[in-house]
Design a protein around this nucleic acid. Structure first.
Lengths: 155, 155
DNA sequence: ACGAAACCGTTGACATCTCATCTATCCCGC
DNA sequence: GCGGGATAGATGAGATGTCAACGGTTTCGT
């Protein structure tokens, strides 16, 4: 037994629609680019970046998952595939019999080393160059505000 | 034989990272919400919205695909699944022997009618409420600028 | 007319993501 | 030191997305 739903105002809807469309187009183009340029999936790329930059090429499994904010199941499948492709390896963890370290292989380093400059170039070309530094700052502030707001909200 | 890659400045990288993180978190939470609230996938939702709002419940297949900016293959699979679930139906097109109309079924209308208010509530709660109207306008302007820029760029 | 090219939509193979469930190990109180 | 709960991670099923190739139709130049 609800009241009429409260729809968005036309300004709110316009903002939402523009944002969604932009975001979808941009992410779509970038992932297709990564794939085409490097043969890696966008997921491979993200995981390798996090593993090599934030973990020095070696991280505990769940730490890696947290660092990219994925659930463990997703990461587990992903690591399995990346292992099959030789991008990462798995090492037992001496301290914790359940645990595992994920390690970037030389092939993994090579792949990310080749892919990263191309990726950055596309980010710059498609996104950064569209905006002034002031607009970028504004977008960052807005993004952080939304993130902070979401953290306070339940699911 | 390349020069050292031109990385992003720290301000640019900060903006990019914040945007990506926000976008991913927000979209992730919203799709899980749609799924949990209505049993529909986010894709089902988008397609039904476009079909009922912009097409009056009946659209040519490729027109539908264009209206949500999907490739035809993706839409074809999606429509196949939605057909199986009874959300849409397919009609032959008299004018064009290759073509097809996609039609929202009563069950489809019911599903979208129930899901939409909940979805809007979550959009409002997670996103709209985090920002002032001025910030929303700014974000819309920035999004449209990026979109316009991308349209001019090759793949 | 008629053949080629463009168009509409489908299909199959494969990669990926989610959810629920499972195993094994660790930790903690008693 | 033992039993129960938390933790680390893997796994299988099913839904989804991508890419490349395909089969009919239409269209259009000649």
């Amino acid at each position: 037994m609800n009241a009429t739903p409260r729809w968005l105002t036309s300004e709110q809807k316009a903002a939402w629609d523009s944002f969604i469309r932009m975001q979808e187009t941009l992410i779509g183009r970038l992932s297709r680019r990564i794939q085409a340029d490097s043969g890696m999936s966008a997921s491979d790329y993200i995981v390798l970046v996090s593993l090599t930059e934030r973990g020095g090429g070696r991280m505990r499994f769940l730490e890696l998952a947290k660092s990219v904010e994925w659930e463990k199941s997703r990461m587990s499948h992903q690591v399995g595939r990346m292992r099959k492709r030789g991008l990462v390896a798995r090492e037992e963890c001496p301290d914790d019999g359940r645990g595992a370290f994920i390690v970037a292989t030389p092939a993994g380093y090579r792949a990310i080393g080749e892919a990263a400059p191309l990726h950055v170039e596309h980010v710059r070309r498609l996104f950064i160059e569209a905006l002034t530094q002031e607009e970028l700052d504004t977008l960052a502030r807005i993004s952080n505000r939304v993130l902070a707001h979401m953290e306070k909200q339940p699911d």
